[in-house]
Nucleic acid binder design. Structure first.
Lengths: 354, 354
DNA sequence: CGTATTGTATGTAACGTATTACCAACTGAC
DNA sequence: GTCAGTTGGTAATACGTTACATACAATACG
């Protein structure tokens, strides 16, 4: 309620003087004046209006963060780490849940742009970047997090991700190494680039091992129902039930993320399958839960903390013009974490001749 | 980059006219003028500057949301539902992770206040509200979510929560009903009011059943290490290991939330205890994972969606002066969800005479 | 004694928008 | 042909802050 004018009046000085005090420019100021101003500030419990300040300066130390859903522990965790990294550098973070919907995402971007935010971290989005191209042209700097940036030329300023395809290949290789030949894949709507990369990586590795990917073993939720990530576990459960009731069911399944894996384990158990004795499951992300669930989940770890630190550093450097010599785009290596949800297939595989 | 002036110049009209178009006051405006203005807006891809708009109007349709940690699925989920409820009413939500630290919380509040935000939902905080009292006096409206509001007179405008104590009593009663006599409690730092209420509820129910609460069975993490919620599962694991290695270990444990329960199940298995055959576990919250884990978790459900809807509705009503006749404070009933992590104790209890 | 030279403190013009009051031109009726 | 009423548009001001240039002392110097 109290503005800088009120403070000035109460202290008997000009508005400029108060402004000088607030911004620490009291080097050459009368000690008496300084004290009077500070007292007035305290008395009125005055807080500078950040909005006005920002209008004047044009600057705003806030980053946007667009994620699919903080209800998914992977993104909840990532959000928190990104916020922490930003805070350390004096930036705030505005978290937006886009639910993987392009329109919602576009709306959020407009809103961020209107609020003078010129840097946002994009942690999800449909394969295409077209709906963001205009914002980018108008001065919005976009950093891609955990997703490939194909087709993003001129839109994405910097990016940090994990080699999604490699992750999928590591998972698949692990299962093949255990003796699996029929390996399923479970995912929600495949509309994001990191998801397609994961599926593609798996296919590659299967072919490399001389196996023919069976389209029947790829279970993809349609996004007809508008499912968000909140239902990921539920979808994993549904998916595995359909795969396991096929005539020739898989002996192992690779899921697009750990939430689906958790759901898959649950669904398999409901049908009387034991994990890993009757079905091996590999997830992706290595969320906290993965270590602690039963059985502990074999999964692909993404170095989230490092990724968060990097993307924030890069994006802020871009914003502040402190271009470093670092690469604008880094791709980190994911890591296979072997726990107890994978094992050799139940019996010599009768169906597979090869 | 392009301001309202540029649009006006390009359309050959005055600034005010453009302003009228933007704000939908084109009822009595020449069709030609209107079209020219809209074309100019499109050409320059002009977006009204939200900052300037807000400075002028003093209004801002944004709510603050302070939570312990979005990395905890309960809060991630709650955040998402709150955001959804607010968005439906035309409000944005600014999510802040306070990590249960009073200073961080106070910093966030100052920052929200400086940004002209006058309504925030508080989803966590130390027992005392003193550090928020001044903000409240200066016009910040605070809605408490999922926490009791003792000592919050004059600080909290409205609140929605669950009867924490009742939840704890339901859990305890369930365990007692199954025949358990030595029931443990596991929690992180007990510094929040909802946590103390949960512990207290359990004690009450024990005494009501004629059992004497054994302080040795109450395991509370010290907050020496500054553990946040991210480590909740880890703490649950540590806690149960200590309780199960006592001379006279508990046959059941009630944890302060589901994340601790998950950790506890994991820790128990490491020591060779089966859940629920050797140890019963009850959680709190009913996060999505609870249904899907192994074994499915018996827990106390909070009606999060309803709570989110209510708190947003109430807080916005306060802000907009649309005082309704509703109660400012509502306390909902939690519900016991019995799944498979609880069962009768392993054997006739030899130690307990009673 | 007049002119620099400091040391303080003030005035003023933005920043981009919304609102209020106001003005000009046109319409139609008496 | 004048007056009221209607329609379409403008100018000025305020929102709370900051940055820059300037004013006014008082002291120092030649």
């Amino acid at each position: 309620m109290a503005g800088i004018k009120d403070v000035a009046k109460r202290a008997g000085v000009s508005v400029s003087t108060v402004s000088n005090v607030i911004n620490g420019r009291h080097a050459k100021m009368g000690a008496r004046t300084l004290r009077r101003v500070q007292e007035a500030i305290d008395d009125l419990s005055y807080t500078p209006n950040a909005v006005a300040r920002q209008l004047k300066s044009g600057q705003i130390k806030t980053l946007g963060l667009v994620v699919p859903s903080v209800a998914n522990p992977f993104w909840g965790n990532a959000s928190q780490l990104i916020e922490k990294a930003a805070l350390k550098r004096g930036y705030q973070v505005l978290i937006c849940n886009a639910e993987r919907e392009p329109e919602l995402e576009a709306t959020y971007f407009s809103s961020l742009y209107a609020s003078s935010i010129r840097g946002t971290i994009l942690g999800s989005s449909p394969v295409s970047f077209d709906h963001l191209r205009e914002h980018a042209r108008n001065g919005m700097h976009i950093g891609a997090f955990d997703r490939t940036t194909q087709g993003a030329e001129g839109v994405v300023t910097c990016s940090v991700s994990v080699d999604q395809s490699l992750g999928a290949r590591l998972a698949t290789r692990h299962l093949i190494g255990l003796g699996h030949r029929r390996i399923g894949f479970i995912s929600g709507p495949i509309g994001t680039s990191s998801r397609t990369a994961r599926l593609e990586g798996m296919r590659q590795e299967l072919e490399k091992a001389g196996l023919t990917p069976d389209p029947d073993l790829v279970w993809l939720a349609t996004n007809a129902t508008g499912f968000g990530d909140s239902q990921a576990a539920e979808l994993g459960r549904t998916g595995i039930r359909e795969l396991l009731t096929l005539d020739d069911p898989p002996t192992a399944v690779f899921t697009v993320n750990d939430m689906y894996a958790i759901g898959a384990c649950s669904g398999a158990r409901e049908l009387g399958f034991r994990v890993p004795e009757d079905l091996s499951v590999v997830g992706f992300d290595d969320i906290i839960m993965a270590k602690v669930m039963e059985p502990p989940l074999t999964t692909i770890r993404q170095p989230v903390e490092q990724m968060a630190e990097l993307i924030v550093k890069k994006l802020i450097a871009t914003l502040e013009g402190t271009e470093t010599t670092d690469d604008a785009h880094v791709v980190l290596r994911p890591e296979l974490i072997v726990r107890s949800s994978t094992a050799a297939p139940p019996a010599p595989n009768a169906q597979e001749k090869d």
